[in-house]
Design a protein around this nucleic acid. Structure first.
Lengths: 394, 394
DNA sequence: GTTCATTTATTCAATCAATGAACAAAGTAT
DNA sequence: ATACTTTGTTCATTGATTGAATAAATGAAC
């Protein structure tokens, strides 16, 4: 869109900058803000006055003097409103309540077995309602709901296809919007994860990061220059269908040699079942069992993880050569096997990427303590509440 | 960087918008500009007044009335200055002179055989000097020089590595800047090509396009949301080292199964030489010979192109699944074989990409008539002359 | 204890860009 | 000839940042 300039825009830009500065670096005095931003002291004073009126900023008293009058320290009012984030998984719903800074205050985990829409949606609604009920009173109340979904979405929040849930053409945006009278954002799980990691996880401060979601399939969230890259119709990041083996196994998608046939949780489980074909319980193994077996010293399983890890490494090397990112975060189910897959991944990456691109590169596993998908989804809701305004010069 | 708002910024934004509007949609009247941009009539009048003073816009007389006073039509003054663009190839230098709109007015092709720095640089300087000499008198003169280079660059315009030229750590930016007292921009060839295609080639209006440069090796220029994506240290787009065959041929880079071992001009020539090992001149075949042979009906060569085309298709399918672009442009040397490689490429793409991502996708070959690399390089120079100022809201 | 420079924050006139309204100029339609 | 339209300029108004002046509060020096 075409945005022309006038004095209202100027104010929006500067107010946005001041608030962002306080959010990121508080406690700060008016004078410090003026220096950090380059804005005139008077301008800062008047903008702060408004932000205090709006309950977004408050004074916490005097700071220490640096040889003159004592400054009045300011803080961002994280409790002026609350956001809800949801990680809609293939067999669970994790809902969180966060403040405006994205800190988790409440959470609720719900498991389900049948993935039919009729069963899952009511549970989703209930999980969200629980969070709303638990939210404290505040000036702005619930400012938004963000939901991370394992599937392909269009730009209006309709789930076009969520293969592992068996859903197709479900207008989730409309369903949730009609249930709650609040702004709703539906986001791909990997995108939400990328945002979560950038803001609260291992990727704090990084603006070029790729979140690789290793679950039943493989999805990726691409964060470039600090923004999610969506592609022309919102379908970017289908890296699970990367061809890494020209004449490889046939994939459901119609292609051959897709990455996720070799490097996903599905691939792991399938191969494990072949490995233990004759043995009792061999067909009921899940990833936690396999990790336990590796920990117990099973050479077979360790070798299997090694192999899967190498295949993961190949796809990740491709990502690195293409994007030259600062950070790759490996998340979702397979991340619990970090201990067993990390080394093979690193070995392949070392071998198959150009030294230039490795220089500023980090590779991390998503921390299981915080659910970056739910937290990232909540954060997108808060972000659109504040509607940041920035200027670009090129 | 942090850009705060004040009235000067407002003016910069609006002036930028007005000029851009005239550049793209002229001839226009003041009144039409006001409607298109949403700016007040008076504002447009005063900004136009300044742009006319600066020789960037001029009046061409009255247009036709639409039921009232006749409008005064305005045009962008393309001749207010000139830019120079260079495609520095592995055995040639193509220099062009363009006006501020990017239209080519003059060009000069120089061939060289020895790629040593001592030989090539003087010829580069001479080619640029020739363009300068041929430029007409104008208000702003030569406003910049853009050079597209087949190699990896840092952000200061130093060539870190140009394998096919055999160059390493050459500070090309300094060399050219010291030779001419003019702004210089050094850009990767594939990036320049992407820009050229976007502005003047098959990709006009597209903002998510990938330029795939199929030469001795494979390079890619990634244009996302209208901007070149460079990665954290400027080394994005090394897709030539995509692994498409897990246990494939060994590559110079240390990895195995890299795309460019199967799908570049080099791969083509090597396989052709094997094919014609015994025959006279078999070792001297180049790509033009091979195209001629295919045109003449050589089944062997046609089959070879088919095979190369399929491998190209695999890498392109990967790009599509990852980026969901609007357009892929296939450029550089192998583009001359369009007739023989297009079908296999399309077949593989059809087979190996998700239908969603194909819906808004176009795949084109770079037109050989215009050199998108040289033209794109010149355009980057003009762009930085105008320093566009825009506002982003998210 | 007094003086003085320093730091913090507010206030107010000055500046400047967009805007609305009035207006002038030049056309068309009837 | 008249009424209406369209184009473009002019000028007072609005509203944002800014510089300067000012006030308040403090620490350091003597």
């Amino acid at each position: 869109m075409l945005i022309t300039g006038d004095q209202h825009l100027v104010k929006k830009i500067n107010k946005s900058i001041v608030l962002e500065t306080i959010k990121n670096k508080s406690p700060l005095s008016r004078s410090q803000i003026s220096e950090l931003t380059g804005l005139h002291k008077g301008t800062v004073s008047s903008l702060i006055h408004e932000l205090i009126e709006e309950d977004l900023v408050f004074e916490i008293g005097e700071g220490i003097s640096s040889g003159g009058r004592r400054p009045v320290m300011l803080l961002f009012n994280q409790q002026a409103g609350y956001a809800i984030g949801v990680n809609l998984g293939v067999n669970f719903i994790l809902a969180v309540l966060t403040n405006l800074q994205g800190e988790v205050l409440e959470e609720k985990m719900t498991y389900f077995e049948h993935t039919s829409v009729d069963v899952v949606i009511p549970q989703l609604i209930e999980a969200i309602q629980t969070m709303i009920d638990r939210a404290p009173e505040s000036r702005y109340g619930i400012i938004g709901i963000g939901i991370g979904v394992p599937g392909v979405l269009d730009d209006k929040g309709t789930i076009l296809l969520a293969p592992n849930l068996g859903w197709e053409n479900l207008d989730l945006y409309r369903i949730v919007t009609e249930a709650f009278n609040t702004p709703v954002i539906i986001e791909n799980e990997a995108n939400a994860g990328a945002i979560g990691e950038k803001e609260f996880g291992v990727g704090i401060g990084d603006s070029n990061l790729i979140f690789v979601s290793l679950g039943i399939g493989i999805g990726t969230g691409i964060l470039l220059n600090g923004e999610i890259y969506r592609g022309v119709s919102g379908f970017s990041g289908e890296m699970g269908h990367f061809i890494i083996e020209t004449n490889g196994k046939k994939c459901k998608c119609g292609s051959k040699g897709c990455w996720e046939l070799y490097a996903s949780e599905n691939a792991l489980i399938e191969q494990a079942r072949q490995l233990f074909a004759g043995e009792p319980n061999g067909q009921a193994l899940d990833i936690n069992d396999l990790v336990a077996m590796a920990d117990a010293g099973s050479a077979k399983v360790i070798h299997l993880f090694n192999q899967i890890g190498e295949y993961i490494g190949i796809g990740i090397a491709n990502i690195i050569n293409m994007f030259n990112p600062e950070l790759i975060v490996i998340g979702n189910r397979l991340a619990v096997a970090e201990k067993w897959i990390k080394n093979p991944i690193m070995r392949i990456v070392e071998q198959s990427t150009l030294p230039f691109t490795r220089r500023q590169l980090k590779i991390s596993f998503s921390s299981p303590a915080t659910d970056s998908i739910a937290v990232g989804a909540a954060y997108t809701a808060t972000k659109s509440f504040f509607s940041n305004t920035k200027v670009l010069v090129d």
